[in-house]
């Protein structure tokens, strides 16, 4: 094997290997927009986070603008504290609201950010005050059944 041919093959191999890593990073993984860019961190407390996990997306109008980086528990409020990393390119007003939503019926959970109307923008370390926790399927079904039962037997209630 000539030295030059060998070098060529090894060079080709290394380039292909790096290309594969880049393919995995950019096309397969999410090392796109904000993973490498500037971010700012905000907190939000929820009464119930349901099945939210770290690294779940934060979306606004369906666009991914950040990720959940940490989930904790506040022992004074007995509520979940969720830390979000938001892309610095997308500033949000201070009175924006956060809600935990589910993509599809049984899909993964994410945080939906709804922009408010305040002039001041959320800064690093701020807390989002308006939050809505996850909808727990069991509660939902319970409510549904309860209201159904109430509808179908109107005469059952002597007050009406």
């Amino acid at each position: 094997m000539q030295r030059a041919t060998l070098d060529l093959w090894v060079g080709f191999f290394v380039v292909a290997g790096i290309a594969a890593v880049l393919f995995l990073a950019l096309k397969v993984g999410n090392m796109g927009a904000f993973e490498t860019g500037q971010t700012y961190t905000v907190k939000a407390t929820f009464a119930n986070i349901g099945g939210l996990k770290t690294r779940a997306p934060v979306k606004s109008a369906g666009v991914v603008v950040g990720r959940v980086v940490d989930i904790g528990f506040d022992t004074e409020l007995y509520e979940a504290t969720v830390t979000l990393n938001l892309d610095a390119r997308f500033p949000f007003p201070r009175d924006s609201s956060a809600a935990i939503m589910t993509s599809g019926l049984l899909g993964e959970q994410y945080i939906a950010l709804e922009a408010g109307g305040d002039d001041k923008m959320l800064a690093n370390g701020d807390t989002i005050r308006l939050t809505q926790g996850a909808v727990v399927l069991e509660n939902l079904i319970g409510q549904f059944l309860y209201s159904k039962a109430a509808e179908e037997t109107p005469g059952a209630s002597p007050a009406q």
Binding site: A25, V28, G29, M31, P57, V64
Partner: peptide, 10 residues
Amino acid sequence: QAAVDFREDI
């Protein structure tokens, strides 16, 4: 892309 994380997975 939404599910695969660069640091955690790759």
